[in-house]
Structure formats: C-alpha cells, structure tokens
Design a protein around this nucleic acid. Structure first.
Ligand code: MN
Ligand code: MN
Ligand code: MN
Ligand code: MN
Lengths: 232, 232
DNA sequence: GGACCTAGTTAGGCCAAACTAATTCAAGAG
DNA sequence: CTCTTGAATTAGTTTGGCCTAACTAGGTCC
C-alpha cells in the first residue's frame, strides 16, 4: 500500500462526488476534466493508470467512462472524511466562515495523518456533517445517506429546511449567507417563475422573501419539514 | 512568484538549518543529501536549479557548497515559521507531545495558507518559541538569536536551563521527557567523564542526577542562569 | 611528485502528471 | 444506412524530482 499521490486522491474524490450527485453511475472523461481543471487527455491517461493499479481503483472502459471499485470508493471516502473534518475544524476552532474553508481543506486533506484525523474527530465530538451540510464518512467509510431534494424540486408551500449547500463557489456562499439562507434555515417556495425563472423563497416565520436564480437554487438541497431542533 | 514546490522549500529550509547550527557558512552537498535523505547527485541537480532561478535563491559554486541568498533565506524563514507554529499549535491545541509534532509539521508546513498561518499565530498569542525551544520567525522573517551553548560546552557547576532541544529524533525526545530533561529544566553539570564519556547532569533543587551520553548531550542547548520565571 | 581516497559532479534514465495536436469513435440526424 | 459532430483517445513533449554508474577535482600521505 504505497502511499497515494495527491493527484490520485483528487481524481478518486472527484469521481465519487460526480457519481453521487449525478444520476448515471458512470462518470465521463470531460466531467472529470472540468471538475479537476485539467485537459481531457490528462484524464484519460490517469484513468488508465487507476484502472491498471493493483488493487484496481477504478473500472474504466474506453469511451464509456469510469466507476469506482470498492477499493477506490474506500479511498475516496477516506479523502472526503479528511476534507470535511478539516472544513468543520477550521470553522469551529479557527473561526473560518463557510466560504473560506473549502480551499484550505482541499490542500490539507492529502497531508494529515490518521492520527491527526482522529484527534480532530474526537475534539469535534465525532460530528456527522460539515459546515455545508455534507455528511462526514466515519472511519470505516460508512456515510449516512439522507433524503434530500434539490430546492428546485421542492413543491410550492412545502415547508422544508436547507440541509446542504455546494461548497465549490465561495462567492455564492457569501451571497447566501447575506440573505440568511444558511444551514437549517426554514423555508418554503412561494412562487416559481416559468421558463427557468427565479424561485421565490420565504424564510418561515418572517415576511422575508428572496428571489433566487435557478443556478443558485440548483446548488441548494433541502429536507422536508423542520430540522428536528425546536427553534430558539 | 510562481508557488514553490515542497521539494524546493525543504531544500532551502535544510540549507538554513545546517548553516545556522554549523560553524562554516557554506553548506556541503553531502550534508544536504544526508539531511534530506536523497542521493548526492540529486542535490547537485537541485542546487543548480536554485542557483539559476530568478530571483536567485542560492549562491552555489561547484565543489564549494551553497549559501542562501537573501531571497532564499526569506523563503527558508517563511517555511520555518510555518513548521514551528504548526508544531506549537499541535501541542497546544491538539494534545500532541513534543516527540510527535515534528513529522506532522513537516508535511503541513508546505500546505497551509498565509491566512491559516496568521490565525494560528494569533490564536497562540504570537509565540516566540516552538515546543523544542526553537525561535519562531515573525511574519517579516526576523528571528531572535539567543546566546545558547551546547550542553557539552557547559562548565562544571554552572547553573543553566535547557533552552532548546533538537526535534529530529522522537525516540530521544521521549527519553529526555522520561528523565525530566524538558524545556526550561534547571540543571548543572556535576561531572564530565573524559574521552567523550557521559555527562552527569543534576536537576537543580533535587538530588536527581542522570548520566547522559555525548551524542544525546550534543542535541541539547542551554542558556546560563535560570529561565527568568520564578519557580512555582 | 605520484598514488589514492573521498566528496562532488556529469551522464543517462525513470516515473508521475501535466500539456497540445492529431486522430478515432459513438451516436444521433437526416 | 451514411454523415456529421462532439467526446474521447493516442501520440508525442515537457517539467520536476529523483535514481545509479561512471568520472573528476583536490587534498593526504609517502
Ligand atoms: Mn485536494
Ligand atoms: Mn484518514
Ligand atoms: Mn517538509
Ligand atoms: Mn507564511
């Protein structure tokens, strides 16, 4: 088990992420290239290598995209655990805001030891979710799946709360923060403009309504009903 | 200022360290090779590159060893600041012991942002020394020089305190810990066996005396007199 | 002064991970 | 069933960082 390079870890993580938020189970070369910011040809090269490794980390078929093998998925989850624990740690212990944590975690995730991982997890009380609401895999690679829907799928006047937001665009996170659309915010959709127009979102218990563009709304996931915690 | 690779940072750091604890100001190829754990030929290759960079990071003359240029020294100090702040942070905030911090810091030092560096420094109250007593350079690369001597140079019955210990050998650090020879311990040398024999070290205020081999003693630096703080 | 040793350098290669440019494939439109 | 086109792959380079093996500069010793 020669230690894997950051590049390999990032590929596996990216495959996992695309796989788990898209519908089809095979991930395309271009989707990966876009996500990682490298040329398609580079992706093809790396996929061949991952496919040829022992143990095989990926199931790759020319022109057909890739899938993670169980071994590959295990590593992806390990990296994801690092990433999300670090994000949470930075925000809890060092006062980072939710738009700042991602970049820093992306570098640190490849470099912390299992020991440091454990200490952080313990110090945080073995948390379940990161600052963007994404579930944190446990040490054995189990990850809790919740029933969430995209905000764009939510029916009119269906009360729900924000349970997860994409962590990739800091500017968008700052924007949502300003609007009060943070994790666990209770909301309902009051109106959906046609032709992919904006969604009108009301913060439950207030008269505040925001009109959100579809691109932004696509990055927000909600769970039906309230958060379980009584409101303060 | 294209971001420097971890390898380059480690070379510069190593040159700085060897330079500042040895007597001669030029660092030899083999000293670097030993310190970094790479082949001599690899060092020659890297030194040529550092010498050819713009800005020039190193002053390298064939067969004559290297020196850091001001630009190179600035980077070395920056990396050293990262390393030492991280070591201290790990021990203060995450309960690491002084023999565990070095390895972890060696990886993290290349990867933290200036922002994280600042937050850690602030959280620790802009500390002056790391867990091994090494001075932490400030943000501008100023480093405080103290008058320390090697324990082996200390005169008989000269009261002194331990002000610094090499961080490179965890086993040795654990050993010293067990003996109570930790940072700021008040000590005196009661006896020096001839022919590079052991030193007898007494913990001041007690009857405890330890016999230390010369190799161990070489890694310990002391400052004359007491630590300035009254004993508790 | 010549032989010898060691530290240091050169030469030549390897591997990982990226790139560009040229080519090939797959799948839908007609 | 063929054509077209965008996605994907191949081919060929580059760069960085390391390696081994072979050679050389310079100091030591007789
Ligand atoms: Mn990453
Ligand atoms: Mn881990
Ligand atoms: Mn390092
Ligand atoms: Mn810095």
């Amino acid at each position: 088990m020669t230690t894997l390079s950051p590049a390999v870890e990032d590929y596996l993580k990216a495959i996992y992420e695309i796989q788990s938020e898209g519908d089809q189970d095979r991930v395309s070369t271009s989707a990966l290239a876009d996500c990682l910011g490298v040329a398609r040809a580079s992706v093809t090269g790396m996929l061949k290598k991952l496919n040829a490794m022992d143990p095989k980390l990926v199931n790759y078929i020319r022109y057909r995209g890739v899938q993670l093998t169980p071994a590959g998925e295990k590593i992806a989850l390990e990296v994801l655990r690092h990433h999300r624990l670090i994000e949470l740690y930075l925000s809890e212990a060092l006062g980072y805001s939710w738009d700042e944590v991602h970049q820093e975690a992306d570098n640190l995730e490849h470099v912390i030891s299992e020991d440091l991982e454990d200490r952080i997890a313990t110090l945080l009380g073995h948390p379940q979710v990161d600052p963007h609401g994404a579930p944190i895999p446990d040490r054995d690679g189990n990850i809790s799946r919740r029933e969430e829907v995209q905000l764009t799928q939510l029916g009119i006047h269906q009360p729900a709360h924000i349970s997860r937001v994409s962590d990739h665009d800091p500017a968008m996170l700052r924007y949502l923060q300003e609007l009060g659309l943070t994790l666990n915010a209770q909301i309902e959709v009051t109106e959906k403009a046609p032709f992919s127009g904006p969604l009108h979102i009301r913060l439950i218990g207030t008269e505040i309504v925001h009109a959100l563009g579809r691109q932004v709304a696509d990055y927000i996931f909600v769970t039906l009903g309230s958060t379980g915690r009584k409101k303060s």
